[in-house]
């Protein structure tokens, strides 16, 4: 079985955004710093007030792995698959983990330009995934 997210009051808006095919992150009202993962205070200035701001969802691969042997049975049928740490534009450099899809495993590289898409993995769960931005 594929692990399901266990949303909590801190993270629920992120998952709600994914359901609507929107990538949203907390942004501090006081100093405008984005933060990830979600939490009660701004790590930069300590302020609590924030918005869940939508971002365009482009960025580049900061690091990545190719999973060849799944440790969770829910992913066994999907190997090999790529999970990258994507550094997002417009956010001051926050990084999120996500699958890289629609791209041969061997073609993935650090600094590759990618953009977000959304993949419904069940009736209840929609995940952000990334695809390469083609140059043409």
């Amino acid at each position: 079985m594929t692990p399901r997210p266990l949303p909590n009051p801190d993270t629920q808006p992120f998952w709600d955004g994914c359901d609507r095919h929107e990538l949203r992150f907390q942004r501090c009202d006081a100093c405008e710093t984005f933060r990830f993962y979600p939490g009660p205070l701004c790590p930069s200035c300590g302020a609590a007030d924030h918005q869940w701001q939508r971002v365009k969802g482009t960025g580049e691969i900061y690091s990545y792995v190719v999973v060849r042997r799944a440790m969770s049975s829910g992913f066994a049928a999907e190997v090999p698959y790529v999970v990258a740490l994507v550094e997002l534009d417009e956010t001051g450099g926050i990084r999120i983990p996500a699958r890289v899809v629609d791209c041969p495993v061997a073609d993935v590289f650090i600094e590759m330009a990618v953009e977000v898409g959304f993949e419904a993995v069940s009736d209840e769960i929609t995940l952000p995934v990334f695809t390469p931005i083609t140059q043409d």
Partner: peptide, 21 residues
């Protein structure tokens, strides 16, 4: 949840991200 839902469930999968970088 941000990792496990994407298929990163083991320590090896986590540390490989750092090793690659």
């Amino acid at each position: 949840s941000f990792f496990s839902t994407q298929g990163i469930t083991s320590p090896a999968q986590h540390y490989a991200l750092i090793a690659r970088r």
